[in-house]
Each structure stands twice: as structure tokens, then as C-alpha cells.
């Protein structure tokens, strides 16, 4: 499922990141990648989400969160 479909407070494993090249690179450098664990901290109906990844919080716009595919919830 898409990142924005995850539940607040749950942790998921990223399956794939598919956005514009430039953004994917930027996310890569930020450590958001295949197999990374992300926790959804907050989200809005529009698809904007706040995630916690490797100890930092990132706010992601709808277009980015749309491109991040996640697996089922993990019990970290």
C-alpha cells in the first residue's frame, strides 16, 4: 500500500520509492530507501505525512508520499 494509507503511530517497511528522479535521490540521501523502516507520526487527508525515519522527522508532500510503497505494519 501507499505510505499515506498507513496508520498513525505504526511502523512500516518501505518496499519501493518511485518519484521524480531528483526527489528519489534526495530521499535516498536522507536514508529513505527500500527496506528502510518508517513510522507514521501524523498525516492529513490530502496525503501529506510526517514520518520518522532513522531518528529524524520528515514532512512529505502528497506527490512524494504517493510514490512510497510500504508493506504491512511491523512490530518494531
Amino acid at each position: 500500500m501507499k505510505l499515506q494509507e498507513g496508520k498513525i503511530g505504526e511502523t512500516y517497511r518501505v518496499k519501493s520509492v518511485r518519484t521524480e528522479d531528483k526527489l528519489t535521490r534526495r530521499l535516498e540521501a536522507l536514508g529513505v530507501n527500500e527496506d528502510t523502516l518508517v513510522t507514521i507520526m501524523n498525516k492529513k487527508g490530502s496525503g501529506t505525512v510526517i514520518i520518522k525515519v532513522r531518528g529524524t522527522r520528515l514532512a512529505l508532500g502528497q506527490k512524494i508520499s504517493d510514490g512510497i510503497e510500504i508493506g504491512g505494519a511491523e512490530n518494531a
Binding site: T19, R26, G47, I50, R57, L58, A59, G61, Q62, I64
Partner: peptide, 11 residues
């Protein structure tokens, strides 16, 4: 057509 490409770190 950049769309909603917000990407920002929240300290």
C-alpha cells in the same frame, strides 16, 4: 508541474 513535493526535516 511540480505538484506537492514538500520535503522538509522537522527538528
Amino acid at each position: 508541474t511540480e505538484g506537492d513535493t514538500l520535503l522538509i526535516e522537522l527538528p
